[in-house]
Each structure stands twice: as structure tokens, then as C-alpha cells.
Nucleic acid binder design. Structure first.
Lengths: 168, 168
DNA sequence: CATGAAAGAACCCGAGA
DNA sequence: TCTCGGGTTCTTTCATG
């Protein structure tokens, strides 16, 4: 009864591809491309959103333009057993953490952090390390990207509080 | 090429925030919210795109819905000096690599990889390890996410080749 | 600010359970 | 028949010169 037969055919896939390439294309245009009317496309998109396949539409912004110029991954080691629920709470206290997950290997969790600059990153790191059951952290700073950066916006989807956001 | 004096005020920031929350909102609606006419908003958006601040508009899709159910980070160690340019080339050969960067620390690069399942991931890993100057890799598998997953779509912005994409 | 285009709603059609 | 997808038309809203 659950685990639906999945209404997920080739047309849906093509629509998703089109919308991932450009979320602002019109339904009519997409329809013309895949051989469907605008209405049919819209209905499918609505269904895909309903089903949670499409979780949103977002503008992708170059983080450096918003003043986020420093990026790092932080492995987190906890005292004793680390209950993911508590970890999630901690993570939400720090808007500079843009992604966080539990992982295999020595560390309990891996965080992706964006900061204004190295000084800001240090401050964030200290804040994280004073959290109750964090035992130690190991940071890896990102030097340069080898692929065109995907979406993944800045922390809290805004500009760092005290930046002077230039372009670049 | 730019790094200009930066035309970047509060209104621009508000527009960006609005578009990051929902890339399909109308200019008129955004304008009403921040006290600008639709036309003015459009002009600013055009300018922000022109300047490379907004790099695109994309639909965010739950990767698992597309059949990407396995996610890992892979630290890459190279023979001798690793020229980022060559590394970038290698990285582009594997569509399952969704992000790649050079980093500080022991490893030369860090890759983010999405695969259909563990078997597929193993295959990708073997493919990567047979690349010319890759000396060793250390993989960390993602177990669960502690924050609502940001955009960051599946590899090659499509579905894995031989999946049976269900929902959920 | 005026004009053409897109979105959205109401309605109809046809195939298959 | 009833349902599920698709198409058609019409009105309102939007994009854009």
C-alpha cells in the first residue's frame, strides 16, 4: 500500500533535468521540448513537488559574492556514544554550518562550514568546541574547487553579519 | 574579471534571499515585499546575473528519489606533486563525483561522490583508483544527515543509468 | 505603461481497469 | 462506469521593451 508504484517515468525525468538546468523555464517551453502540453507539464511538476521529489526551487549564488570566502570540513569526535539527535541540536546552533552528517570512520560527524575569513572560521571552531560533548575536531580547509561549484548556498541563506560583500 | 566596487546593497541582499528561498517567485511579489516595482527588481536581478553573483536557478531534487542512495567523501592522495589542473581532468571523467576540491591536511584532494548503492560506489572507487597518479584513497561513507539537505543534486544532473527510481 | 507570454482554473476527451 | 492522464480554452497575472 505504501512504497507507491512510483509515478516516475521518462517524462518526469526529462522534466526534472530541464528544471534542474533552469528552474525558471516555462512549462510550455519544457512541454514543447518533451512533447507535452504546458498543462500536463505543470500537473507533473505539482505531483513531483507533492511527492517530495522536488523539494524547492532556488537561485544559486556564488558564496564569495555574499562574503563567504572561507570553507572547511570539520571532523567531529564526541565523548562516548554520540546520539545523532543531540548532535543535530548542536549543529543547528551554528548558522555557519551548512551541512552536517554522521559518518563511518573514526569521526562521529562531518561538518561543512562556511565563514567570512580564517579569523571568523577560528571563532566558529572555538564555539563548536565548547559545546558539551565535543571531544575534539579535525579541520580540513578547502583551497580550491576542481569542479564548477554546485548550488549549496551560504550559511543561513544570507550574508555574513558583518561583511562588506564585494563581488569578485 | 570583475571584483568591481560592487553594486551590492540591502535591497540586492533581500532579493537574493527571496530568490534563494523560492526561485520561481515573481518579480512583482518580491518587489512588493521589499518596496520596489517589479521592473526595478528585474533590473537588479539581471544585473546580479550579469555580475555572476547569481549563477543560475535550479530545482532541488531529493537525490534518493533519483536513485542516488549512497553518498561518500573520498580523500585522495597523489604520487608526488599533484597538479590541480590534471586532477580536475581526472575528476571530470567520473560523473559520480559531484564535488571536488584541493584541501589542506594530508590528502591532496577531497571528493564528494554519489552512487546508486554500495556496489556502485565500490565500482566508482576502483575506477578512480586506477587513474594514473592516484596513490591511495580513504573513504568516509555518509550515514545520515543532521541538517535538511541543501540542493546539491545528483551526479551529472540526471538519474543513475540503470536505476529503478522509486520515490521515498 | 503597454503588449505579448505564461500561469492557473474549469472543463472536455479517450483509454483502460 | 469510474478513474487517470492529457489537451483546450479563458482569465488573470507577469515579464519585458
Amino acid at each position: 500500500m505504501n512504497s507507491r508504484p512510483a509515478p516516475f517515468d521518462d517524462l518526469d525525468r526529462k522534466i526534472l533535468t530541464a528544471l534542474m538546468a533552469n528552474a525558471r523555464r516555462s512549462f510550455a517551453e519544457i512541454g514543447a521540448e518533451i512533447g507535452l502540453s504546458a498543462t500536463a507539464v505543470k500537473r507533473r511538476v505539482d505531483r513531483l513537488r507533492e511527492a517530495g521529489v522536488i523539494t524547492g526551487f532556488t537561485a544559486t549564488v556564488k558564496p564569495s559574492a555574499l562574503g563567504w570566502r572561507t570553507e572547511a570540513y570539520v571532523e567531529v569526535y564526541c565523548e562516548g556514544a554520540a546520539p545523532p539527535r543531540r548532535l543535530a541540536e548542536v549543529v543547528r546552533n551554528h548558522p555557519e554550518i551548512t551541512a552536517a552528517m554522521t559518518v563511518t570512520g573514526g569521526a562521529d560527524a562531518l561538518l561543512h562550514v562556511r565563514a567570512r575569513d580564517v579569523a571568523h572560521f577560528e571563532e566558529v571552531l572555538e564555539r563548536i568546541r565548547t559545546e558539551p560533548f565535543i571531544r575534539k575536531t579535525i579541520s580540513v580547509m578547502v583551497l580550491s574547487h576542481l569542479l564548477p561549484e554546485s548550488p549549496e548556498a551560504g550559511a543561513s541563506h544570507a550574508a555574513p553579519e558583518e561583511d562588506a560583500a564585494e563581488l569578485r
